[in-house]
Structure formats: structure tokens, C-alpha cells
Design a protein around this nucleic acid. Structure first.
Length: 115
DNA sequence: AACCTGACGAAGA
DNA sequence: TTCTTCGCCAGGT
């Protein structure tokens, strides 16, 4: 059974637009627990397939692909490049350019209603 | 229950 | 700016 926090995290990640990225810390904060960045990463690597999430759009606060396995790292890079996101040779992304600028979880709910 | 672990992050040095 | 240290949280052993 996913906790409230987990559900919010999943919902937020699903809503990251194509061509944008977000960070573990930001997702945690928006989901209501600013200090649970590590938990966000755990949710991702344990259940991204299960929930069919755009896991590749979540990176660390320094704008880098923060993944250990070399294969997955390359995969994530390719997935992001497919969305026209630039990544340098050190797996770094310009957050100022690509960071999803959502301010609160309410914005998602509002947009859904409005549409 | 105790201890370890990590796709994290802020704060110091 | 780069490197450590330390706090966090929950799952695994």
C-alpha cells in the first residue's frame, strides 16, 4: 500500500512535461516532505516500471544524472536527448533552462479542472 | 530491534 | 567552486 506521500510523488512525476526535468528534492518538497529526497529516489528505482513513470525526467539538484549503473545512465541520457534536452559530456543538464517550474501541487489540480 | 544502505541535499570548510 | 560531513526516510537483512 503506497503512502499518501508516495502517491503524491507518483502523481507529480507523471505530470512532469516532456522536455522538462525536475529534481528529487523538488518533488519531495511538493509532495509535502522537503527532507525526503532520498525516499523519492527509492520510489523511482523500485517502482518506475510498475507505474509507468517518466523516471528519466528526475535528476539531482546539481542538474546531473544521478544514477549508478552505467547502462541505465546512458539510457537516461538517450531518453532525455530524445526530448531535445541538452546534456554535456559529464551528464550535466542546465537546470535554468530545463527545470519544471511548478510552484505547488495545487497547480496540477487546477489545470486539470480547467481543462 | 539494530544496523546498513542509497538514482539526495544543505551547510561548512 | 569542489569535497566532506551530517541529517533524512524507509526498505532490506
Amino acid at each position: 500500500m503506497p503512502t499518501e506521500f508516495t502517491k503524491k510523488v507518483l502523481m507529480l512525476i507523471k505530470n512532469i512535461p516532456k522536455g522538462k526535468v525536475s529534481t528529487y528534492g523538488r518533488i519531495a518538497k511538493l509532495a509535502g516532505n522537503p527532507k525526503a529526497a532520498r525516499q523519492v529516489s527509492w520510489i523511482l528505482h523500485s517502482s518506475s516500471k510498475k507505474y509507468n513513470l517518466p523516471w528519466h525526467r528526475v535528476i539531482n539538484s546539481r542538474g546531473e544524472i544521478s544514477i549508478k549503473s552505467v547502462e541505465s545512465k546512458e539510457l537516461q541520457k538517450r531518453l532525455l536527448e530524445n526530448e531535445m534536452i541538452e546534456i554535456n559530456s559529464e551528464f550535466k543538464i542546465d537546470l535554468n533552462k530545463y527545470h519544471w517550474d511548478l510552484q505547488s501541487i495545487e497547480e496540477i489540480n487546477t489545470n486539470k479542472k480547467g481543462r
